[in-house]
Design a protein around this nucleic acid. Structure first.
Length: 694
DNA sequence: AGCACGCCGACT
DNA sequence: GTCGGCGTGCTC
């Protein structure tokens, strides 16, 4: 029954036909069929998350499947059968993977036979299974859920194609741009020598970082091991893909972009799984790519939210990388222009070494950064028309006069508080529930976006001012206003729906939301960057607001020419704020270290570990009543949170001291299982490492 | 989740 | 006696 997977030379049409037949045909029941003589039991992970709560199920291997039913292959099994008049009947067909072949089962009852081996391709390797198990445990999730993230859907045509033969290992590359980092050449040498160094890398500004990543990959390949690079978006994947092709030529690596289409994606994934390719670059799902003999894991810009998977149990690429490196003995390179608090934590515990340039090099390569508050006098009439502080206006004018484009970063609408104090920028909040205030129409009175309570005589809780400042001005209107202020200078915008890849190196205004900044053609960089409305980023009600603001600023500033070539960054924000200071000094590691120390004192993650539990008040209370928390755990809340689909919602945060993260996850999982057994109807959502802690 | 088995009250 | 209430437990 392995027709679709045989390496035969069937024509495409024929394969399509076979696939259709397989899908429609009702698999045999195999009742009374001969069973396999050797290892007649297949242990199966059934793809049915919640209700089977992470148990394996044993099935009998019919003799006809003895060859194909290897560990790692996809199978279909009947599950939930009942006995009618002494005979087993029915049971729903479910997909699953064989995890082991056994001589006998420890299940006391009679085993049902496997219904079907979908394909003889062993896609779930022992290492991948182990990784998924570890990730599921880390996030209090089920193995089946993680498998769905880790193993791409099968594509029969792609599977029928042979993968190319493996290429010989390349020679170790020269250090190149790594020479700019004192510890860089040694790091590469360790990779080439088969070692597993671990580093947190504060990448210098400029277009070099994809090439540094490519050299780290090439060094690892030269040791005969494989490498994995995970980036937050398709644009950065394309840049590293390009750098790898330049350094290693075609065929040494594959890129797993999201927009490939299922067939090409699976074809490339199979090339990795079959060992024909040893280097992979891609977005978050790439973290699970079954690279053989893994020597290096690279995560670029680990503070980027795209590294957090939106699907349960929400694993984060950085955490999977660390778990995987530990399991497979691989090196780790956690890089970005910014450094996350988690990165600083790895450095402070000594688990990873910092990979940073010395101050002198940073001064040479980084643009000059200036700060300005937006209350500064708009002396210049043109600057006033553009709503720009005059310092920013001057910087833009100089860069344009020198013949270079100017980048203007504008926070995305909806990313920031809707209304804030006109004097001190403190977000306007509801007096009853702390929700954000909003003005439904231009002249209507204020009301709370969460609880709807009207607010008729607002004044600032911090400074007492009665003046409100409206929402951040979006990219579109900024473009219009700047266009008037700089007549005859082309204005281009790049944003979520229409991202510009590059702009020419000529005078123009490039207005962009964070993450959509175009590169300047020729790799030379912008003459200046204006980072507008910094107050809005800094005042977000989020634990990570400062870290995130700095990350977005550094990403934009990294595209600007060095100060020696006149490159200037102007950030419109309170000059004394810590992220603003870190931008001026270009000291991301120092900033992350300070944030880490502060979080440690406040018992916040990542030093402590947290999980959130949310759902109806009754369901949350129920789970909190059942859970047996580890020593030293705190329960914060529950507190009401904005209603979901009209249902009242609460959320509690659970917090454990360092080293108790695994115990917390285990306790959460046990409590979830207990709840299902008690058949409490309403679901609770459990999230380890919640991202939106106010 | 479904869907069986199991141990106590009012019916033909 | 026995039909059926849904509490409890299982699904290989």
């Amino acid at each position: 029954m392995s027709s679709t997977g045989e390496n035969g030379a069937a024509e495409p049409e024929q394969l399509a036909f076979i696939r259709e037949t397989v899908r429609r045909a009702k698999p045999r029941t195999w009742r009374g069929a001969k069973r396999a003589e050797h290892l007649p039991v297949a242990r199966v992970v059934v793809d049915k998350g919640v209700l089977t709560i992470d148990k394996f199920f044993d099935y009998e291997v019919p003799a006809a499947m003895a060859e194909d039913a290897k560990p790692g292959v996809r199978v279909r099994v009947r599950f939930g059968a009942r006995v009618v008049r002494g005979q087993r009947e029915g049971g729903e067909l479910h997909d699953g993977f064989i995890v082991a072949r056994l001589e006998k089962s420890d299940f006391p009852g009679p085993l049902a036979p496997l219904a079907q081996v979908l394909s003889p391709e062993p896609v779930l390797t022992p290492q991948l299974l182990q990784l998924c198990r570890t990730v599921a445990d880390r996030y209090a999730g089920t193995l089946a859920d993680v498998l769905q993230l880790a193993v791409p859907p099968r594509h029969a045509k792609a599977e029928a194609e042979p993968s190319p033969p493996p290429r010989p290992r390349p020679p170790a590359p020269a250090p190149g741009g790594w020479q700019r980092y004192p510890a860089g050449p040694d790091f590469l040498a360790a990779l080439a020598g088969g070692g597993a160094p671990r580093a947190v890398w504060a990448a210098l500004p400029g277009p070099g970082w994809p090439y540094e990543i490519a050299r780290a990959v090439a060094s690892t390949l030269s040791s005969g091991r494989g490498a994995l690079v995970v980036l937050p978006d398709g644009r950065s994947v394309a840049r590293v893909d390009q750098a790898l092709t330049e350094l290693l030529g075609e065929g040494m690596h594959v890129a797993l972009e999201a927009d490939l289409g299922p067939r090409e994606r699976y074809r490339r994934w199979l090339a990795v799984s079959r060992g024909s390719v040893h280097a992979v670059v891609g977005t978050r799902a790439t973290m699970f790519a079954p690279v053989r003999d893994l020597g290096l894991v690279v995560v670029w810009s680990d503070g980027d939210n795209s590294h957090s998977d939106p699907r349960a149990p929400h694993p984060h690429v950085r955490e999977v990388a660390l778990l995987r490196a530990a399991e497979e003995g691989a090196a780790v390179l956690l890089g970005g222009h910014a450094v996350t608090v988690e990165g600083a934590q790895l450095v402070s515990t000594g688990w990873a070494r910092p990979l940073v340039a010395d101050r002198e090099t940073v001064r040479q390569v980084a643009p000059r950064a200036r700060t300005v508050t937006d209350q500064d006098q708009h002396r210049d009439a043109a600057a006033q028309a553009a709503r720009l502080p005059s310092v920013a206006w001057e910087a833009a004018r100089e860069a344009l006069a020198a013949g270079h484009p100017v980048l203007i970063q504008v926070p995305r609408r909806g990313y920031v508080p809707r209304l804030a104090c006109g004097r001190c920028r403190t977000p306007a909040r509801c007096r009853r529930c702390e929700g954000p205030l909003e003005a439904p129409s231009a002249d209507a009175s204020l009301c709370c976006a969460w609880c709807g309570e009207a607010e008729n005589d607002w004044h600032c809780a911090e400074c007492g001012s009665f003046r409100l400042r409206a929402q951040v001005v979006g990219a579109r209107r900024t473009a219009e206003e700047l266009g008037k202020a700089f007549p005859r200078i082309p204005v281009r915008t790049s944003g979520r729906d229409a991202v510009l890849a590059t702009v020419p190196d000529e005078p123009s205004l490039v207005i962009s939301t964070p993450g959509a900044e175009p590169l300047v053609e020729g790799g030379s960089g912008y003459g200046a960057a204006l980072l507008l409305d910094g107050w809005a980023l800094l005042s977000r009600p989020d634990l990570r607001a400062g870290e995130e603001a700095l990350r977005l600023w550094l990403a934009a500033a990294a595209l600007v020419r060095p100060s020696a070539e006149g490159g200037t960054v102007v950030v419109v924000a309170e000059p004394s704020a810590r992220p603003v200071q870190a931008l001026v000094r270009w000291d991301p590691l120092g900033h992350a270290g300070l944030e880490r120390d502060e979080r440690a004192q406040l018992h916040f993650p990542p030093v402590s570990r947290m999980a959130s539990v949310s759902g109806s008040p009754a369901a949350v209370a129920d789970l909190l009543g059942l859970i047996r928390l580890p020593e030293g755990a705190d329960v914060l809340g529950p507190v009401p949170v904005p209603a979901l689909r009209g249902q009242e919602q609460e959320r509690a945060l659970l917090r454990v001291p360092p080293g108790q993260g695994a115990a917390l996850a285990a306790a959460l999982k046990a409590a979830q299982i207990a709840r299902i057994a008690l058949r409490t109807p309403e679901a609770v959502r459990v999230r380890v490492d919640p991202t939106d802690i106010g």
